[in-house]
Nucleic acid binder design. Sequence first.
DNA 1: GCAAGAAATGTAATGTTATTACATTACCTG
DNA 2: CAGGTAATGTAATAACATTACATTTCTTGC
Lengths: 165, 165
Amino acid sequence: MAISAQSAKAFEDHNHQRCCGEVLEQAHKLATSGGLRLTPVRRRTLEILLEEHRAMGAYEVLERLAKDGFGKQPPVAYRALEFLVENGLAHRIRRLNAFAACMTPGQPHAPAFFICELCNCVAEVQDVSVRQAVEAAAAGIGFGVSRANVEVVGTCPACHKGRDQ
Amino acid sequence: MAISAQSAKAFEDHNHQRCCGEVLEQAHKLATSGGLRLTPVRRRTLEILLEEHRAMGAYEVLERLAKDGFGKQPPVAYRALEFLVENGLAHRIRRLNAFAACMTPGQPHAPAFFICELCNCVAEVQDVSVRQAVEAAAAGIGFGVSRANVEVVGTCPACHKGRDQ
DNA sequence: GCAAGAAATGTAATGTTATTACATTACCTG
DNA sequence: CAGGTAATGTAATAACATTACATTTCTTGC
C-alpha cells in the first residue's frame, strides 16, 4: 500500500534531485567518520526512501530491494531500516507503520512529524520548543527521556485549502 | 503478551478502586450528556482497561471480552477500542501497539505518554506547553492540527533508580 | 596472509496486529 | 410497526513484524 507521493520536507517545493544528493552525501560522511557501515543494502534502502521522499512501509521498501537483487524476506528490509533509524538516518512513523529518510541527518535533532489525514503526506519539522516542553514535563515526573516521538495528525496546507473550496 | 502491571497515572501511588470508579462515572456522564452509546461491550472494554490500569493490546482485551461472553473475533475488540479512543475515553499507544484508558476523560486534553523502556509502564501526563509548542510549529508550516500524539521513551522513576544501584 | 571472532546477510517459518466483508440483531424515529 | 441506522457476531484474510538458523563477509590480531 503506497502512502503518498507528496513532498515531505515541510510542505514546500524544493529541488528534489539536489536534496537527495545532499542527504546521501551527509549520510556518507557520517558513516565514514562515525565508523558506521553503510553497506549496499543499507545504502540502497536510504536511497529508496530519499528517492520516493515519503513515508514507506517496510514491505514496500522490501519489494524495491528485491528488485535490485537483494533478499526477498522481511528481515532484509527491517534490518536495513532499523540500522538507519538507530543511526539517525531515517525515522519511523508509527501512525503509518512506515519509515522516512531523515532530512537533517547528523545534527542533534528533535523531530516532529506532521501527517496529513487526507493525503497521508508527512512533513518532518525540527522544533526545539516541542522537545523542551517534553523535557520539562519529563523532569516533572522524574522520567529520563531517551527518545521522544511526536506525531501530529491534521491537514496539510494543500489539503486544507482544497477543503474550503 | 502482557505489557505491564505498573501504575499508569503518572508514576504515583493512588487509590485504584476509587480512580476506576471515578473515571467510569465520568464516562457515563459524558455518554448520557453527549449522546454517546456506551453499550455493554464498550463499557466492559473501558472497565477492563481501567481495572488493569495499563496499556493493553487489542488481542489481550479481546480475550477478556470473550471470557465475559462477547464475541471472539478481533473486530469486537477493535471496534470497542476505536469507539473509546474516538470519544476521548481511551488512548492508543502506538509504540506498544496498545490501548489505555484515559485518566482525565471529558476535559479538553493534551496528553503526552511517557513509556518506560525497561518495564513498559506508561504514564499519561496532561501538558499544555507541549501542545502549545506543537500548535506553534504547525502554524509555522500552515498545518491544521486535529490530534497530536506525543510518546516519550525513556526510564520511569522506579527503573531509573534501579539502574544506578 | 590467515585463522578466529564478529558483523552482516539470506531465507524459511511463524507470530502478531489489524482490516474487510457480510450476515444478523438491536435501536431509534416517524 | 415499518423502515432506516447503528451496533454486533463471525469468518476470512491482509498487513506488519520477529525468530531462528545457516551462510557469507568483514575485521583484527598474530
